[in-house]
Design a protein around this nucleic acid. Structure first.
Lengths: 119, 119
DNA sequence: TTGACATATTCCATTGTGAGAATATAATCC
DNA sequence: GGATTATATTCTCACAATGGAATATGTCAA
């Protein structure tokens, strides 16, 4: 599959407005730009520009219909972020930390890692 | 508890170098700055500056010992991101999508949503 | 065609961000 | 004290990003 190039997804969602747009696109199906303009309360050119960034990052996809362009959330594009943050989930999730400790103990047959005492 | 103010965690991890720093801090315990300088191959002032951003975002914490400052990953700070992205997990996870579809079908007693055909 | 509508793009001014060099602070050692 | 080590801060510069206004592009309708 032709990876359509995803220039820094992290930077794309760093902008609060763009996160708003993503949220507005979730749940509902393809929405025209004007819908989003109404949803996020931002001038139309701004919305178009933010959508362009999201599109280039692979987070949304467009589809022309008549004079309007319907934007759809492409959640797959968010996956790298989820994956990256997920690497650290075990550091705050006590349950996961325990599971991990046990797994490592069984694997290496060594004493469990000290649970990194909370301050 | 005094929420220590977390100015845009999203912006903090938008920088690749800072993500490198976070990764370098994970797993190992508190590490002095020079360790990190060696790890990420960046001039020391740059590292200090990035660490400052991470600190203000609540992603790392510092602890003085002698002349050095030991930085520790504060994974809790990443939680907002995980939570935000997690909201959209169901849109790419087929299994979760099915669960959701069934739940909605049962709730509204209506035909299941068409799985949004890929282009 | 003309006109209205939906959206994108360009231009400009402002602000923010990161790199790099130099310097400052603070703790330790002699 | 002075020298050395560890880290932070300041400064400047180049550049990217953002908002706003204006304008361009494309599509439908009459």
């Amino acid at each position: 599959m032709p990876r359509p190039a995803a220039p820094d997804v992290f930077a794309a969602i760093a902008e609060p407005r763009r996160r708003d747009l993503v949220a507005a696109l979730a749940g509902a199906g393809p929405r025209p730009v004007n819908d989003l303009v109404a949803a996020v309360r931002l001038p139309q050119p701004a919305v178009s520009k933010h959508l362009a960034v999201l599109r280039e990052a692979g987070i949304v996809s467009v589809q022309r219909r008549g004079r309007q362009r319907l934007y759809t959330l492409n959640a797959e594009g968010l996956r790298p972020i989820h994956a990256w943050v997920g690497r650290f989930e075990r550091f705050w999730d006590r349950h996961l930390a325990r599971i991990r400790a046990r797994a490592e103990r069984q694997a290496h047959h060594q004493p469990p890692t000290r649970p990194a005492k909370e301050k």
